[in-house]
């Protein structure tokens, strides 16, 4: 069911609209390769889209690093979004739903956090922001995928 991790590891620039499309497509493909189910893939791609857009809009651009993980028999995908923008002065507040400093629905950070299994944010005002998220492919295969 799960393939090899080849092609999952990547470094993608986040500099424009078009880069967001590449980020989504890479994350989709990586998650599929690692054996994520359709719903888990969709959640992870959506989270990646939110975070990449944050990197682009608030961080002034940056990059995504994708890393495959293995923990026993479980396969996971870690995504690290980093920028060297102005940083987030109040991380707690930024994670709250409804918070926005730039014209979204305010679902970006808090919403993305609910779509992944692990979420960490490291921000230094004036020096940039790094958001690290990790999700694991479900260990139990879905009934639908049984022959």
């Amino acid at each position: 069911m799960s393939g090899t991790a080849a092609g999952v590891e990547a470094r993608l620039p986040i500099r424009s609209d078009l880069d967001l499309v590449w980020v989504r497509q890479h994350v989709r493909q990586a998650a599929a390769t690692l054996g994520f189910g359709l719903v888990e893939q969709t959640k992870l791609v959506t989270a990646a889209s939110e975070l990449a857009r944050n990197t682009l809009v608030y961080g002034g651009g940056g990059e995504l690093r994708a890393v495959p993980l293995t923990d026993g028999r479980a396969q996971g995908l870690r995504l690290v979004f980093s920028d060297s923008g102005p940083g987030i002065p109040d991380v707690e507040q930024a994670l709250r739903d409804g918070y926005t400093s730039g014209g979204g629905l305010g679902m970006g950070l808090g919403g993305a956090r609910r779509l992944v299994h692990e979420f960490a944010i490291d921000s230094t005002p004036g020096a940039g922001t790094t958001v690290t998220v990790t999700s694991w492919a479900a260990r139990t295969p879905r009934p639908r995928e049984e022959p």
Partner: peptide, 10 residues
């Protein structure tokens, strides 16, 4: 999958 994700996203 999109509907479930949107709900989770809030």
């Amino acid at each position: 999958a999109v509907a479930l994700t949107l709900v989770e996203l809030g």
